[in-house]
């Protein structure tokens, strides 16, 4: 039977959760934008509908992190593993699209967790893996998807459970959040705070229908199929003429995971750092010789689209875009990935 959490009890629940974990990350308002931040007081959390400016992926895949530190003295080198101080973390307020996006990060950074024996378990990102194991996701279903949202167009739902450990769906008429434990972690969370939850016969069906009904964007059917033959065919030149080649789309995206590695430091030592990068940047694939396999912005934009809609499904069996709409809203020139895919596959 489903569980219900009274709307007024949400903060009590979060406070209790915060006490158990080392870190609670949730959406807050800052300088006029909504962002995921580690919160001190649960009262800071905003429950406003709609997505934060960028996703919470940095909890697991920080925008910059040290892979190791090095000290140089004379000719000798000493390497040192970095600490990972975050510890047990609970993310609250993950929208279903963002939570579903974890599948992509998991597939790329922690492939061994997947039950696919063909994927050689040779390489895992140990930092991601550790953080992932220490993170619990409390999802928050959307009742009012915005004009950029298109999760339903890629087979997801504003009340979907994928990626969440525990999903809360607001049922304002009943004055409760419907709580669904999706994973064992979620079960444990419910069990640990059982006194706050009651059994209920309510379902989220109606909320789901209403929320899905608000999404105006057309379904992207046959994704993967048509795109498989569209490397040269669609007029990428025209579709991407206005793309500026920045990294805004990639950095706000819950599934983008490209990164760069550089050594930062001075003559005495420093760190080898891994940090976010974007396939939209002109130098992303440039060789030192000057040769660039993706020499034009349209070629780079094509990479962005095909990576999400073809290579990831083909290669990792995951949906590369979860329809959060962030790139559409954030792009300075409104490059609209849903519009583009609908156009080239339609």
């Amino acid at each position: 039977m489903a569980k219900a959490l009274r709307t007024e009890a949400l903060l009590d629940f979060l406070r209790a959760v915060q006490q158990d974990a080392r870190r609670l990350v949730a959406p807050v308002e800052e300088d006029g934008l909504r962002l995921f931040r580690a919160v001190d007081r649960v009262e800071e959390i905003t429950l406003a509908e709609g997505n934060t400016r960028w996703s919470f992926k940095e909890v697991l895949f920080p925008r910059s992190e040290a892979l190791f530190h090095y000290r140089l003295s004379g000719g000798s080198v000493a390497l040192q593993e970095p600490d990972q101080p975050e510890g047990e973390t609970v993310v609250f307020g993950a929208r279903p699209c963002d939570a579903a996006g974890l599948a992509v990060l998991d597939a790329v950074f922690a492939p061994n967790g997947r039950p696919d024996p063909d994927q050689a378990p040779e390489h895992e990102d140990p930092f991601y893996r550790r953080r992932r194991a220490q993170t619990t996701i409390i999802g928050l279903a959307c009742l009012e998807p915005g004009p950029a949202c298109f999760c339903t167009a890629v087979g997801l739902s504003p009340t979907g459970t994928a990626g969440s450990d525990l999903l809360l769906t607001p049922l304002p008429d009943q004055g409760v959040f419907l709580a669904e434990a999706v994973t064992e972690k979620g079960e444990r969370l419910l069990a640990a705070h059982a006194h706050l939850f009651t059994d209920t016969d309510d379902t989220k069906e109606q909320a789901t229908r209403a929320a899905e009904g608000r999404i105006q964007r057309t379904a992207l059917s046959g994704v993967g199929g048509p795109l498989a033959t569209l490397f040269e065919a669609p007029p990428w030149e025209e579709l991407a003429a206005r793309c500026l080649g920045c990294g805004a789309c990639a950095f706000v995206c819950p599934t983008c995971h490209c990164f760069d590695i550089v050594d930062e430091g001075n003559a005495a030592g420093g760190s080898r750092c891994k940090f976010w990068d974007s396939c939209g940047f002109a130098l992303f694939t440039a060789h030192t010789s000057g040769h660039n396999p993706r020499a034009t912005q349209p070629a780079r934009f094509r990479q962005r689209v095909l990576h999400k809609f073809r290579y990831l499904p083909e290669r990792f069996g995951v949906q590369g875009c979860v329809g959060c709409g962030r790139c559409i809203a954030t792009c300075p020139v409104n490059m609209d990935i849903q519009e583009v895919v609908a156009k080239v596959t339609g």
């Binding site: 390489h123 990102d125 590695i261 060789h287």
Partner: peptide, 17 residues
Amino acid sequence: NRMKCGSGQCGRGNIGG
């Protein structure tokens, strides 16, 4: 190709799929 990770994560190593 230009690569950073050596293992299919950093996003550079692909030629198409």
